[in-house]
Simulated assay, not measured.
Amino acid sequence: MKPSIGRIVLYTLTEDDAQAINKRRADFDQHRKTDDYTDTGYVAHYGNEARAGDTYPAVVIRVWNDDLVNAKVLLDGTDTYWATSRHQGDDNGTWNWPPRV
């Protein structure tokens, strides 16, 4: 199968992905404790800890060729992660089709 815009795939996080996600969440957590924080439409980067090897559903946003895509990863929390120029595969940092059940 070829990827196309809007399709759901599974994306597996790398160590760098997980660190970036957890840093955004820690930054948000620290910022919301300050006096200048008010509920004015901030996107809350909040959720369970992300780890390398965790697999999440992702929506294909752009297709570069038969296996290279940009995808919006739906994390276990209030935020998403933009995985750019990722190949199909079984390793961390790749996407694959969900298994049929």
Rank of each mutant, 00 (worst) to 15 (best):
M1T: 08
P3S: 07
P3I: 05
P3E: 03
I5Q: 12
G6L: 09
R7N: 11
I8H: 07
I8F: 10
I8Q: 13
V9L: 07
V9H: 03
V9G: 05
L10V: 11
L10R: 10
T12W: 03
L13K: 00
L13D: 03
T14Y: 00
D16W: 05
D17K: 01
D17S: 04
A18M: 08
Q19E: 13
Q19V: 12
Q19N: 14
A20N: 13
I21D: 02
I21M: 05
K23S: 08
K23G: 01
R24D: 11
R25F: 03
R25Y: 03
A26E: 15
D27N: 14
D27T: 09
D27A: 13
F28N: 00
D29W: 01
Q30V: 02
Q30E: 14
Q30A: 15
H31A: 15
H31V: 07
H31C: 03
R32E: 05
R32H: 00
R32Q: 14
D35G: 13
D39N: 13
T40H: 08
T40Q: 11
G41N: 07
Y42L: 10
Y42K: 06
Y42V: 07
V43K: 09
Y46N: 11
G47I: 00
N48Q: 12
E49G: 02
A50G: 07
A50N: 06
A50F: 07
A50E: 08
R51Q: 14
G53A: 14
D54N: 15
T55Y: 05
P57I: 05
P57Y: 03
A58G: 05
V60G: 09
I61W: 02
I61G: 01
I61R: 12
I61K: 10
R62V: 09
R62G: 03
W64V: 12
N65K: 00
D66C: 05
D66M: 05
D66K: 10
D67G: 13
N70S: 15
N70W: 06
A71G: 04
K72S: 14
K72L: 15
K72E: 14
V73R: 00
V73S: 00
L75Q: 06
L75D: 02
L75M: 12
T78D: 13
T78G: 10
T78Q: 10
D79H: 15
Y81F: 15
W82F: 13
A83K: 02
A83S: 11
R86W: 01
Q88S: 11
Q88H: 11
D90S: 14
D90R: 10
D91Y: 08
D91V: 04
D91H: 12
D91A: 15
N92W: 02
N92Q: 13
G93D: 04
T94W: 02
W95Y: 09
W95C: 06
N96F: 03
N96A: 13
N96L: 07
P98S: 08
P98E: 07
P99C: 05
R100C: 02
V101W: 09
V101D: 12
